[in-house]
Amino acid sequence: MAKTTAEHHGFPWKHLIGFVLSIVLTLFALWVALYTDLSVTWILIIIFGFAILQAALQLLMFMHVTENSTSSNLTSRVQIGNILFAAFVAIVIVIGSVWVLTAGHAKHDKHDEPKTENHGGSHDSEEHGSH
């Protein structure tokens, strides 16, 4: 798969498709977030799913992350591996921090109240923060 060659001469379809899909994903995420009656958990799952999809679009359609600078596939493998690793680090940092720090607060807050051991089910887990 010599990806560096060809496809640079005609009409930039790849860019146009990436652009249109990005607009659609942006508007759809906005609509889901503000104008639907889904639960907060579902809204968050959907909009973050769209964000990841749109980031992948940018990487593939605009940034040519799969492109190789040599005829072996080494450079694209390094590029993709590096970005995936960075995404993994980012997810660990963000989810890990939120989990460790806000879960701790929630538990701490509960000590102040009279003992009502209410776990609330998985659906309300985002609501801890609103105090």
């Binding site: 590029q79 590096n82 970005i83 960075a86 997810i91």
Partner: peptide
């Protein structure tokens, strides 16, 4: 590309 990986980590700390 490798620098961008580091930038992702930087922004991740700010998002966190």
């Amino acid at each position: 590309w490798i620098f961008l990986g580091a930038e992702i980590a930087l922004f991740a700390t700010l998002f966190a």
